[in-house]
Design a protein around this nucleic acid. Structure first.
Lengths: 158, 158
DNA sequence: GCATAACAGTCGCAGTCGCAACAATTAAGG
DNA sequence: CCTTAATTGTTGCGACTGCGACTGTTATGC
């Protein structure tokens, strides 16, 4: 697959918008390319979906955490988190225990097996990120990070 | 909603990956924020979904185009395009006519009504993009574009 | 000319998504 | 207390998604 090009057959029409130059489209497309590429790795290697990967990454990062906190930290809707947690629990990669002082809350931790997979995922993630930076070049990667930082700090979320 | 923070309650654990610093995650998140923000505009104003917006934008850009070309240009799966085309046709924003020399192919054009909405969408898109660049600052926006360009030119798509 | 492959677009289906509603529990206000 | 509001996590549901199979058509190779 190649970059979306202006069709060879016809010329763009005046008074129009060039989709391939429109920043939100380009950003969405770039993110999707990277996301899919990385997802292929953890899907093939661990059989995880994207929500499951994010959930596992968050649990591993904090060792003991609640579902709501996972959602906040990984920018996922609570139903996505809930379903990912259930899937990871069924694989016996995590356990939950109800908080005794507030029984609405469940604390989630990795099992021994979960920790093994998490460590491997961290390695996978680091190596993919390194490969990505290498492909983009130091300059390109730095610019991308700076641009993303601008979004993170300057855009108010809906 | 605020940026995902390291939880105040606990400190990150050693040997882990910080999701909030992981480039693919940050990129996906940034794209989603922008995408949602812009989608709110065209959804509220024209009642379009994301695939419909991309499809309409592509048809308007080329004036006369086929479904396959729309998919290539807008990076969308052919079923997504097919369904978006049907929805736009039901609104009478587009028409299709079968190519007489190759009857597999359909040429799609905007109707008068479709063109009216398209022009408004172009204005909406340009003003959102301008607002976005303003929020990011000239530097931030330029860096973001450069980073995206690096992805577009250096990453081979799956 | 005929069989086979390639291609355009559609559709059925199973999986995923987010919203709204929900049960269970705790917090807040009088 | 006791009522009402807020919070945590789950679930039902309708909408959306991509895959593979399909129809109809054109291109290719013998």
């Amino acid at each position: 697959m190649t970059l979306p090009q202006t069709r060879s057959a016809e010329t763009p029409v005046a008074g129009t918008l060039a989709l391939e130059g429109f920043l939100p489209y380009r950003l969405a497309r770039a993110a999707e390319i990277i996301s899919r590429q990385f997802a292929t790795l953890y899907r093939e290697r661990h059989g995880l979906t994207r929500p499951e990967w994010r959930t596992l990454a968050t649990i591993g990062q904090f060792n003991r955490i609640t579902a709501t906190e996972i959602g906040t930290h990984s920018s996922m809707h609570k139903t996505k988190v809930s379903r990912a947690i259930r899937a990871l629990e069924e694989r016996k990669w995590i356990t939950r225990q109800v908080d005794q002082t507030d029984r609405r809350v469940e604390h989630i931790e990795l099992t021994r097996e979960g920790r093994i997979h998490y460590r491997d995922l961290v390695t996978l993630a680091r190596s993919y990120e390194a490969r990505l930076v290498e492909m983009l070049g130091e300059t390109g990667a730095a610019e991308l990070e700076a641009g993303i930082s601008a979004i993170e700090t300057r855009i108010e979320r809906s």
